[in-house]
Simulated assay, not measured.
Amino acid sequence: MIISLFFTSACSLLENAGKAKNGVTTIKIANYCSETHPQNIALREKFKPMVEEKTHGKYKVEIYPANALGDEEQFSSGVRIGSIQMAITGMGLQIANPKIGVVEWPYLFDNYEQANRILHGEVGEEIGDAFRELGAEPLAWTANGFRVVSANRKIDSMEDFKGFRLRMGNIPIFISTGKALGANVQPLALSEVFTALEQGVIDGQENPYVTLKESGFYEVQSHVTETRHMFSPNVYLMNKKFYDGLDKETQKIIREAARESAQYEWKLLQESEEKVKKELEKEGIEIIVPDEKFRSELEKSVEPVYEELYKKYDWAEELVNKIRAQK
């Protein structure tokens, strides 16, 4: 009886999600970023007005930042089943299809221009097919940022990672990368990180600069090392059934709005990163930029990670080589 009720409820939710009321269809967009993050600024200033104006008010966009519709796993699932029309997500769906996560493999991209160009080309389209297989239509790629390590002490050599309790997301590629660096990896939910840092349960964490600032982690840290060990993108995902049900003109409007909004976010994110670095230094945070020797050692440390990935996935080496050939 309980199972039957669950499926009845789920089906009802799917059927009613986004349905037009008084001729207006609502597109709900969920994400995990704060309201002031470049991601939500871009959605408010570009995506929402473009869609609403160009569809002459037939579509209304509602933005739900800061996990207002549940955490990333929940709203990613919501997009797949159709209870949420759209979401801006990280690469969490790599758990369902590992190819999605390749863009976060260590030291794969060198800079933002390179990542933007490659993700919006043949490679991004190939990974996009993996999203489609899961019931989600990818509309555009955005930047979360290059990941850096914040710490309660200086880290300027590989030796400094020994015994260092580093929080990372509970995703296999993150954990294997952290271990390759030599850290004692502690998987924790993002919501638990500040308290863990404050209480000394962990020594540091890794995230892009803007997330470091927006989450307040810098308040209980003293140093940042620009390891830039991974690039983390986000992606605009729309429920595929919802997208396929739109007329061609509306699909074009939504895709163009997503692309323009995403490109604006890339610009804002990079500007915000430079601003954040200056603000952190004013707060007394010491920023360490690895010298050529340290940088080389960091990159070399993750070679075993790739060796294991190539053994595990028959498509991995070819796709990685395709990315590297376009750098």
Results as ranks from 00 to 15, higher is better:
I254A: 09
S191N: 11
T89M: 11
G124P: 05
Q263D: 15
L246A: 06
L139E: 10
E15G: 05
F294S: 08
R44I: 00
F47E: 15
Y218P: 03
A20C: 12
E206Q: 11
E214C: 00
S222F: 00
G82Y: 05
K21S: 13
K46D: 15
K162Y: 05
F294M: 08
L43P: 05
E303W: 00
E137V: 00
Y209L: 13
G178C: 11
R132Q: 11
M86D: 10
Q263L: 13
L69M: 13
I254N: 07
I63C: 10
E137M: 08
K28W: 02
P187N: 11
L119S: 10
G128Q: 09
I127Q: 06
K46A: 13
T142H: 10
L190I: 11
L269A: 14
R324C: 02
F7W: 06
R255I: 01
D129Q: 14
N184V: 01
F7C: 08
H120F: 02
E72T: 06
S296E: 15
Q114I: 00
T25A: 15
E35A: 15
T36W: 09
H56Y: 02
A180V: 03
T89Q: 13
A115C: 07
S301T: 01
A96S: 14
A151P: 03
L43Q: 09
Y59R: 10
R255E: 14
D244W: 01
L181H: 07
K162I: 04
E283T: 04
D291P: 05
E198N: 12
T55K: 08
F194M: 12
K179W: 01
G128T: 05
R44Y: 04
A262V: 02
Q326F: 00
L280A: 08
N234C: 13
P65D: 13
N111Y: 01
A10Y: 03
K277L: 11
A136W: 01
M86Y: 03
F75E: 14
V61L: 08
R295C: 07
A17Y: 01
E292I: 02
S301M: 01
M238A: 07
T55S: 14
K327A: 11
V148Q: 11
V61K: 07
R44D: 15
K282Y: 00
N321G: 12
F174C: 10
G70A: 07
E273H: 03
A257P: 04
A262D: 07
S83W: 04
D247Y: 03
R147G: 10
E113N: 15
Q74N: 09
E45I: 01
N40Q: 12
M238T: 03
